[in-house]
């Protein structure tokens, strides 16, 4: 399936882009993160990240559908 990934902060630096279209066999966000972490060298373990699908926080078991927009949210540092 095809997903749209947005990357922020150090994940953006590691991926080398702010967004990309990904064709993947992953069917949930957990499997998708494992695949992308291996490809881009992401060093965060999932317990340090939150995940959002289509603009809303969700959990790591979230089942993905075609054209979902997925964001792995690294630890925040606003303020």
């Amino acid at each position: 399936m095809n997903y749209r990934l947005l990357y922020f902060a150090s994940l953006c630096d590691a991926a080398g882009c702010a967004e990309e279209q990904v064709a993947s066999g992953a069917r949930d966000v957990s499997a998708l993160y494992a695949e992308l972490a291996a490809r881009h060298g992401f060093t965060f373990t999932p317990d340090r990240l939150r995940v959002a699908v289509n603009g809303a926080f969700t959990d790591w078991n979230h089942r993905l559908v075609e054209n979902d927009e997925v964001v792995f949210v690294p630890p925040v540092s606003g303020g």
Binding site: F8, A52, V71, V73, P74, V76, S77, G78, G79
Partner: peptide, 9 residues
Amino acid sequence: VKARVPIWK
């Protein structure tokens, strides 16, 4: 806001 909002410095 500092703990939860997806903003990075």
